[in-house]
């Protein structure tokens, strides 16, 4: 993105990175090779965070098949992210 006045403005000048916690379970844990991590992200929503992590880990479960939880409650993909939020992507469940 360029601005009219300064052609070399860095993206960080307009979007601040937040630190969020992400936990991974089941297939996603195997895809990511870890069960949790702290992510520095400029993502504004849970959906954007998922897309960013999906580019990094190439998850084996499609987003449409998943739910998401923020701070231990089911949430929706458009939820905006705050610093220190705990985000968990939930692949299809299979209890019982």
């Amino acid at each position: 993105m360029s601005t009219p006045d300064g052609p070399t403005t860095a993206p960080q000048a307009t979007t601040e990175a937040r630190s969020v916690q992400v936990q991974y379970y089941a297939q996603l844990r195997e895809d990511a090779g870890r069960s949790e991590e702290t992510v520095q992200s400029t993502a504004g929503t849970v959906d954007e965070l998922f897309e960013e992590l999906n580019r990094r880990y190439d998850f084996s479960v499609a987003k449409d098949d998943m739910r998401v939880a923020v701070n231990d409650s089911f949430s929706d993909w458009e939820t905006s992210l705050d610093s220190q939020d705990l985000v968990v992507f939930i692949p299809p469940v299979a209890g019982g």
Binding site: Y25, A26, Q27, V61, D65, A69, V88, I90, P91, P92, V93, A94, G95, G96
Partner: peptide, 22 residues
């Protein structure tokens, strides 16, 4: 079975394993 976040991986006698989806 439908909504509690619990996941199950079946490990088979032939050594293969698979996550069960829904």
């Amino acid at each position: 079975k439908a909504r509690v976040p619990i996941w199950k991986r079946e490990v088979y006698a032939n050594g293969e394993a698979e996550w069960i989806n829904g």
